[in-house]
Nucleic acid binder design. Structure first.
Lengths: 241, 241
DNA sequence: CCAATAGTGTCTTTCAGACACTATATA
DNA sequence: TATATAGTGTCTGAAAGACACTATTGG
């Protein structure tokens, strides 16, 4: 009945083959107004020279989440700041790696651009690239284009009904900066006035810290920190096509 | 950079250990007005005699989706009718199976009760149990309680913004039967009048077949088939707590 | 001064939820 | 007849989107 039973009756109706298990990371940030992804160039076959998602093999006694966090710190050089990390999906096509069977558990990370400048030091070959340019012009290794597409769609959908957008902002941010995150991820322009009214009206999303900044030019804006709200109710819906 | 590279530099910073990979199935249906799940009793250690999700090991040259469909047909005996199948998440705690490392990819299936009566023949030990009774009174094997909880929550959420509820109805159904599906999955009572107006007003959700039935008693109701709509806009929101 | 961003107020339309009312079956 | 389910109409309140208007900075 349970899959685990098959371990004890090998050959009855299937082999119980072993696979390598990896985690791959879709690390998204907003840089210069564009949704961007952290990619590295492959140094070996297969797909030498092509861009690929950062990733790691899962250790023998390591949980998937821990492997993802390790990949974030080691492979991608992302500081352990308040970074959003969630499982995205698992990709197990038998042909996805030409060398051997590799089942890859993909994770999605949303990080403020600031938290990841540390990347320079730890992962010199990792580079931020705008997502739309990657999707329109680059060929990614393995099935990473598909994983990226799934990650981007997940991020776009999650901004609607959760407060993860704040995970893409620095620790202190203005309503305008938060709005530009939404605009970058969705690729649309939002009405600043309606956005302001709606976002400040959502309980526990934004916590004012009583200071203003004029770093955007124009009238100084209030600075906020992330509140404890996780779900957005009512949701912030993207404009329809 | 990419996880796949680690295959070629074993021991640099981690082993590249092999795992068994399984699929486990959360198969939900509505039976006698209650959201129910298909479970089997384990015949071997560990967890002998305890209830467990149906599942299969993934074949050496088999994709995850194909393994899930196979598990649905073979292990669970679910007919290959228009059954909803989607990946739910992957569970890889190193201790989840005491015998060896097993990474399990969980799938969620929503099927009409009718499509699965064939279960009797193919999987004599599989039984439908009401979800709330399972969650309140039974101990499931492995981490299957957690997987079940995630599956149920996914199903509840998906009913809001997609048309999967129709996947829990027989091929031809009335608005009232569809409403009772929502009520069973969410565990709440809905206003029949508002539900009717809203669901029939959603384009391409329901296709009338021009026939009525009085199998519920009372005034005969129109029969519908599933339309081609996938997303529900506006969504059908659950009443708040 | 002008340009740019921040923030408030107001109007219209859409929609959710409450519920009165009619329609048509079975017991 | 009573009771159950199907289906329509109407009202109210919440909220989305459009947009006029004020506020406060820098150049």
């Amino acid at each position: 009945m349970s899959a685990h039973d098959a371990l004890e009756r090998p050959g009855e109706r299937l082999e119980s083959p072993l696979c390598a298990v990896a985690v791959d990371l879709v690390i998204l940030s907003v840089r210069d107004g564009a949704l961007s992804i952290l990619l590295g160039r492959r140094g070996q076959e297969p797909f030498v020279g092509q861009w690929a998602l950062p990733g790691e093999m899962v250790g023998a006694r390591e949980s998937l989440d821990v492997a993802a966090r390790r990949g974030l710190a080691e492979g991608a050089g992302v500081a352990d700041l308040p970074v959003h990390l969630e499982q995205l999906g698992t990709y197990g096509d038998p042909e996805r790696d030409p060398r051997m069977r590799v089942v890859s558990v993909a994770y999605l990370t949303l990080a403020p651009a600031s938290a990841v400048s540390a990347v320079r030091g730890a992962a010199p070959h990792a580079v931020w690239l705008p997502v739309d340019r990657v999707q329109s012009r680059l060929r990614l290794a393995f099935d990473h284009a598909r994983i990226l597409a799934d990650g981007v769609e997940r991020a776009r959908a999650k901004l609607e009904y959760s407060s993860v957008a704040a995970a893409l902002c620095p620790e202190e941010f203005t309503v305008g900066e938060l709005r530009r995150v939404y605009e970058a991820v969705w690729g649309v322009a939002l009405d600043p006035r309606n956005f302001h009214r709606k976002i400040t009206g959502t309980p526990d999303f934004l916590v004012p810290i009583g200071v203003t900044t004029s770093r955007q030019g124009g009238r100084p804006a209030q600075l906020f920190r992330r509140g404890k709200a996780v779900l957005l109710n009512p949701p912030m819906l993207r404009p329809e096509a």
